[in-house]
Simulated assay, not measured.
Amino acid sequence: MKKPLLAVKDIVQITGITARTLHYYDRIHLFKPTHLTEKGYRLYDRSSLEKLQTILILKEMDFSLKEIADILKLTRQEQKQILKKQRQTLLLRKQRLENIMTALDEYVSGNDISNLHIFNRSSVLPLKEQYANEARFIYGETEAYKVYNETMENLSVDEKEKRFSDIEEIYKQIASCIHQDPSSDEVQRLIEEWKENLMQFMTCDAELLACIAHTYKFDARFKSYFNQYGNEDLADFLYSAIMQNINR
């Protein structure tokens, strides 16, 4: 029995792709019809359908149309080698997507953006490292920053974690006092405790404290950071409490 020729509508019905896609594949010489009728209608034989299905599979494997055209010219063994490499590429992409999904879930659940490990497998630096570089760029020439940097370099990883943990605990306590006046004794006691903690890293004069307070209030990243402690107004509250402390 003679194999029938398939019209565009038949290919569309069999594969699910659109007629527009078939026409485009013809135009770029990726998948051309077997025959053209006198009226210009495209017809395809059964063997060309197998080629189209190979194209669709490769496209689903995330090859570009240009790459697919090149692959189709290769031997079966050469194609296998390329597919093995593509599998490794897709595996790395899968791991990256899983990393992004984990970071997304953590962020939605309230974790601070600076604690997300979203750039671990990227050329982009982790956010904490970006913040450190930014601080070095802005304050690197100041004496206070030099003292801070020297102090941090001399601390072990465990000591650094302990210092940051202590400061985070103070932020939590300040957050619990947010309904008080920023100048209240309780709030100011916590600000003094916060200052003492900072003094272990750098010399905190009024100018530097005012700069920190200003950053807390007007830098959106710090506002986001303080949101994790339960109140969106905490950055503004800290600003007021620090400025009250300076004016004392």
Rank of each mutant, 00 (worst) to 15 (best):
S47F: 10
Y145T: 03
L49R: 06
Q77G: 12
E159V: 02
K172C: 02
H179Q: 14
N149D: 13
L6C: 03
S156I: 04
D205I: 00
I118W: 00
N197I: 01
V124P: 01
D166I: 00
Y41N: 15
I113W: 05
I212G: 01
D233E: 13
G110D: 02
Y107Q: 12
Q188N: 03
T151M: 11
H179D: 15
I174L: 00
Y139C: 04
R121M: 03
L208H: 03
A19W: 02
S240M: 11
V187A: 04
S183P: 08
D105A: 11
R96A: 06
I118A: 01
D236W: 02
S156R: 01
K160C: 07
H179E: 15
S122W: 00
L97A: 06
T18V: 04
Y41W: 11
N115R: 13
E134H: 14
V8T: 15
K223C: 02
E98T: 02
D10V: 07
D26M: 10
E159S: 10
S224Y: 14
C211M: 11
S48V: 06
A235R: 01
L36V: 14
K217G: 01
I68P: 10
Y239G: 00
F201H: 08
E129P: 00
R121W: 03
Q53S: 11
S109C: 04
G140H: 00
L83G: 11
S123C: 11
L74M: 15
C204L: 14
E168C: 06
L56D: 05
E192Q: 15
Y24P: 04
K223D: 07
F63G: 05
Q79F: 08
R248G: 08
I242P: 03
Q79Y: 08
M199P: 01
W194G: 00
E207R: 14
E196N: 12
L125K: 07
H35T: 09
I17G: 07
N154Y: 04
I212P: 07
R248L: 12
Q79E: 13
Q173E: 06
C177D: 01
D166R: 01
E153K: 15
Y171A: 02
E207G: 06
R221Y: 08
E207T: 14
T34G: 14
N247R: 08
E186A: 13
L83P: 11
D112W: 08
E150M: 02
V157L: 12
T215D: 11
V157E: 13
M61I: 09
Q188F: 02
E106Y: 01
F119V: 07
K3D: 15
N245Q: 13
V157N: 04
G16E: 05
L36H: 13
T18C: 08
K223G: 00
D112Y: 13
D158Q: 15
A235H: 06
Y239R: 04
I138A: 05
E193L: 09
K32R: 14
P4H: 13
N99R: 06
T89F: 10
L125T: 07
L43R: 14
K3E: 14
Q53N: 10
N120V: 03
C204H: 00
D236Y: 09
H29E: 15
T203M: 03
E50R: 15
D185P: 00
Q53I: 10
D62P: 05
P126D: 06
L116G: 02
D10C: 06
Q180G: 04
R20G: 03
